[in-house]
């Protein structure tokens, strides 16, 4: 920082002159050089595809034409999408999928983290077991769940029948009303360990002396959780929820493998629908327009994610 001696009677700090942006960049030129390769790679593999996708979203790509012969249609793809009944149904599915998966996985993960934060016999083993759904292949898990849900011979249905809870094999994934909740259960099962790990890490940052002092002062367990633990976990909770939300918006494997978006589009979410439009039906232009809309939503979530991270950093610096 450059300081200049100034007017008599004023303290030196009022005459601090900020270096220009270019000067700052020159001073930090070595740092820029270090990150330059990463920036170049990002431009090639991220910026260009984004540009190309936006460009493609203004073209029509009929099945009988090559992509290079695409026809310019302006914003027709966007208006077609927004006026399409399927779009709104898929969007509703996506919102239900994302909100339900994110919140329930977070609550379960937080609860598990709180339980495992206490010291008890077998804690390490239990923690390892609970992490299994997160580490196994999503493809393998999807096939296993598909067979467990099988509408004629599924294990879950058979157990329910054996226990006398239901009379006949329940229809989990071949029914337009039960298919989405059934897939959300699988997704939560896959994701809650991630929330658990994040929250377990967050719990390490809650000051133990504060909790002890509150206990000495007669605070109940709920009061300690509500007034001490929860405020300290706000930052990591926000980040966890945002990461889960972004991951869920981008989900593909579970719904695609288990149902392919069916039956009757009842389990299509945005990504599976975009995939089908592009690779199954070759509507590259429409799929690109869908992707642009999804990109805008995800960028908004990304903005909040960065803000949450920045707020955390400031809070930590303040502490």
């Amino acid at each position: 920082m450059t300081t200049v001696a100034g007017h008599a009677g004023l303290s030196r700090k009022h005459f601090v002159v900020q270096p220009s942006l270019l000067q700052q960049m020159w001073t930090s030129r070595a740092d820029y050089l270090y990150v330059l390769p990463a920036i170049v790679v990002m431009l090639v593999v991220i910026a260009y595809p984004i540009y190309y996708t936006i460009d493609l979203s203004f073209f029509k790509t009929p099945p009988g034409l090559q992509l290079r012969d695409k026809i310019f249609v302006g914003v027709d793809n966007y208006t077609s999408i927004l006026s399409s009944e399927v779009f709104w149904r898929v969007t509703l599915n996506t919102v239900i999928w994302t909100v339900a998966s994110t919140l329930i996985a977070f609550v379960l993960g937080f609860g598990s983290a709180l339980a495992l934060h206490r010291d008890f016999a077998g804690r390490a083993v239990l923690r390892a077991i609970l992490i299994i759904p997160w580490v196994i292949s999503a493809v393998a898990a999807s096939y296993i769940w598909k067979w467990m849900y099988h509408s004629d011979f599924g294990l879950i249905g058979a157990v329910l029948v054996q226990l006398g809870i239901v009379d006949t094999q329940p229809n989990f994934i071949d029914n337009i009303y039960s298919v989405l909740p059934s897939l959300i259960v699988v997704n939560i099962w896959r994701e809650f360990p991630f929330a658990m790990i994040m929250m377990m890490a967050g719990l390490q940052t809650v000051p133990e002396q504060l909790l002890r002092a509150a206990r000495v002062d007669g605070a109940s367990a709920w009061q300690r959780f509500w007034h001490i633990t929860l405020p300290h976990m706000a930052g990591v909770s926000t980040v966890t929820i945002l990461l889960l939300a972004v991951a869920n918006f981008n989900s593909f494997i579970i719904p695609w493998i288990m149902t392919g978006g069916g039956p009757s589009n009842a389990s299509h979410i945005w990504i599976t629908h975009i995939y089908e439009l592009a690779f199954g039906r070759q509507r590259w232009g429409v799929a690109a327009a869908y992707s642009v809309l999804l990109f805008i939503i995800l960028m908004s979530l990304g903005y909040f994610y960065v803000r949450a991270l920045s707020a955390n950093e400031k809070k930590e610096q303040g502490a």
Partner: peptide
């Protein structure tokens, strides 16, 4: 209901 319920998948 004379065919597999799972016919859709």
């Amino acid at each position: 209901k004379s065919v597999p319920v799972s016919a859709l998948t």
